[in-house]
């Protein structure tokens, strides 16, 4: 699944490790989500949306 996680993270000058710490997951998880290798669970998607103060749909984009 495509996502805007890298962009949103860069806008806030957060490293993958920073984001991982805020989400309480491993840095590898953040990298896997950013590169589209792993789709996050719904609770994690909600945590991401809350953290970036946006909606899940604004972060994750449906693949056409």
């Amino acid at each position: 699944m495509n996502n805007r996680l890298r962009v949103l993270r860069a806008e806030r000058n957060w490293s993958q490790a920073d984001l991982a710490q805020k989400l309480e997951v491993s840095r590898q998880s953040v990298n896997a989500i950013e590169t589209g290798k792993f789709d996050p669970s719904l609770p994690l998607a909600f945590r991401l949306a809350k953290l970036f103060e946006t909606t899940i749909e604004a972060i994750f984009l449906e693949e056409s």
Partner: peptide
């Protein structure tokens, strides 16, 4: 394990 990615791994 709360991290779903690590759990899958």
């Amino acid at each position: 394990e709360k991290d779903a990615y690590v759990r899958n791994l």
